Computed example of a mutant assay.
Amino acid sequence: MPGQSTPIAFTVGARRVFCVNRELEPVVFSLEEALAGSLPTLPPLAREIDGMRVLSAPLAMASAIRTRFPNHIAGAQEEFRRHYIAMDGSFEDYLAQFSGKTRSTLRRKAKKFASADGGTLDVRAYRSRAEVAQFLDLAQPLSQRTYQARLLDAGLPDSEEARAAMLADAAAGNMRCFVLFLAGEPVAYLALPVRGDTLVYAHLGYDPAHASLSPGTVLQMEALRLLFAEDRFRYFDFTEGEGTHKALFGTHSIACCSFLLLRKTFANRILLGARNAFDAGVAQVKAMTRNGGSLASARKLLRS
């Protein structure tokens, strides 16, 4: 089975400095698998595959997973809280979990956005194959303007294969997409594949020109209101990675990690060693600045 050309990125904060590609087989834990502590089915790796990219594994299982692959080197481990929403109640039940101050802030943001657009929120939902095709036509140009696309290479995928996969999911009833409009123009989008009873937080983006109106937050809340009304889903999975947005909207979390398992070759040893040294240097710079070190000292350390 062919792997995926995967960039092993050297990053400072959200900015990618450079990357090295490897052919890796993704091993992705669904939220249900992570909560149950069960390992996904692992296909045998073809000879030309450099290894695996393990995504969103329960932190408690990381050691056991590495032990199962003694001929691989583990590295580039990232640890995070995997936030999710348990959708076993109503939207009103969900809102009740926020503090009064947070509920007030969310209402104020929605009212502010609506006031900028004549007094109502224009949020449109897309789920059929034809509707999701329309969603992609609206959201793709917007995605190119988002910081997710410009800085993180994480905008909406624009390949024919990715489009076909989303349309196939939509035809099977397994896509939920939303767009928030302002004066008739799209300013934020949200794309959610459906996996079983779980909504997967795949792509959220908004026009930075309207950041002061909090379009991402406004769209997230309105989409959740519509999704709770379907009374179909068990979880809303915010997937891997930390973030204030995920922490705010999530009701629960589980300690997870993502890491690489590369074949034990000289080149892979050098690559993972360089990545680990780079991450350690970035962490040292961050610690220095937090502890009162000057910006000039931080720059000097980065140059050394």
Rank of each mutant, 00 (worst) to 15 (best):
57 A>I: 04
45 L>Q: 12
20 V>M: 08
22 R>Y: 06
25 E>W: 09
60 A>H: 10
42 L>T: 07
29 F>V: 04
19 C>A: 15
29 F>G: 05
55 L>D: 02
18 F>Q: 02
50 D>G: 05
53 R>W: 14
13 G>C: 02
60 A>L: 01
43 P>G: 04
29 F>E: 07
14 A>L: 01
12 V>Q: 01
41 T>P: 03
27 V>I: 13
45 L>S: 13
61 M>C: 08
23 E>V: 02
42 L>M: 13
16 R>K: 10
60 A>P: 00
51 G>I: 13
51 G>C: 12
61 M>L: 15
30 S>T: 15
55 L>H: 03
36 A>Y: 01
49 I>N: 10
56 S>D: 15
46 A>C: 12
51 G>P: 09
17 V>Y: 01
45 L>N: 07
28 V>F: 08
38 S>Y: 00
30 S>C: 09
30 S>D: 11
33 E>H: 14
13 G>M: 01
18 F>Y: 14
22 R>Q: 07
17 V>H: 00
16 R>V: 10
59 L>G: 06
26 P>Y: 03
48 E>K: 02
62 A>W: 09
49 I>L: 05
37 G>E: 07
40 P>Q: 09
30 S>P: 04
16 R>N: 06
54 V>H: 13
57 A>F: 07
63 S>H: 11
41 T>M: 03
58 P>S: 08
38 S>A: 15
42 L>G: 03
23 E>D: 10
11 T>L: 00
23 E>Y: 03
25 E>Y: 10
17 V>R: 01
53 R>V: 13
20 V>T: 12
25 E>G: 00
62 A>G: 06
55 L>A: 05
61 M>Y: 00
58 P>W: 10
60 A>N: 06
54 V>D: 14
36 A>G: 01
14 A>H: 00
58 P>L: 04
24 L>G: 00
26 P>F: 04
47 R>L: 12
63 S>I: 03
13 G>D: 00
46 A>T: 12
38 S>H: 13
13 G>H: 00
27 V>F: 02
33 E>I: 08
21 N>Q: 09
63 S>R: 13
56 S>C: 12
63 S>V: 11
48 E>Q: 14
40 P>Y: 08
55 L>K: 05
42 L>F: 07
55 L>R: 08
34 A>S: 15
48 E>A: 03
59 L>W: 02
39 L>M: 15
52 M>C: 15
22 R>A: 05
47 R>F: 05
31 L>N: 11
40 P>C: 11
57 A>W: 06
41 T>A: 12
59 L>C: 05
53 R>P: 09
47 R>A: 14
36 A>Q: 12
30 S>F: 08
38 S>E: 15
56 S>W: 04
12 V>L: 01
63 S>C: 10
52 M>V: 13
51 G>H: 14
16 R>I: 07
52 M>P: 13
27 V>W: 03
19 C>I: 04
23 E>C: 05
